[in-house]
Amino acid sequence: MIELMIVIVIIATFLGGVVAFGASTYKQFIKTSRQAEMKVDVANIRAMIQGDIRRGGKASVNPGNHGVTITKNGKKIVYALKDGAICRESQGRTRKLTGFPVKDAVWTCRHGLITMNVIYNFRNINKRKLECFKVIKDIEMSTEEGDNI
C-alpha cells in the first residue's frame, strides 16, 4: 500500500510538472501569436501611410496627436484612433485597420520622422488579467526611397 502511494505521489509530481510546462508553453505561444498579429497590423498601417506619402501625399499630425492626415491631390486621407481601433477615412469611407482593441494611439513628428505609438489591450488565456502591448513604428516624411524602418 505504501509503495503504491509513493508511486502515485511521484507520478502526480511528474504529471504536475508536465502539465505546468505544457500550460506555460501554450500560454506563451498564444501571447506571442497575438502580439505578432498586433505587430503585423501596425506594420501594415505604417506601410499604408508611407505608401500614401511616397505617392506624393503631404502628411501632418492631427492637433490632438491621435491621428495623421495625408493630403494628396486635394483629397484627405485620415488615419486616426476611433472607438478603440485605428481607422482609415478616405472619401467618406471608414475602414477599421486593427483587429485587437487599441487602448491608445499617438503620432508625433520630429527630425523628419513621424513616430506612431500604438498601445494594445488584450487578454491572454487568463481572462482576468488585462495585458498591455506597445508597438512603435517610424514613418519617413520625405517622398524619397529610404530605409524600411
Binding site: E3, I6, I11, F14, G17, A20
Partner: peptide
Amino acid sequence: TLIEVMICIAIIAIVVTTGAKLIKNYNWM
C-alpha cells in the same frame, strides 16, 4: 523493480520541472 521505476520517474520529474523553470526564466521571447 519498484525502486528502479521510482528512481526513473523521480529523475524525469526533476528534469522536466527544472526545464520548465529554465524556459520560463530565460525570457528569450
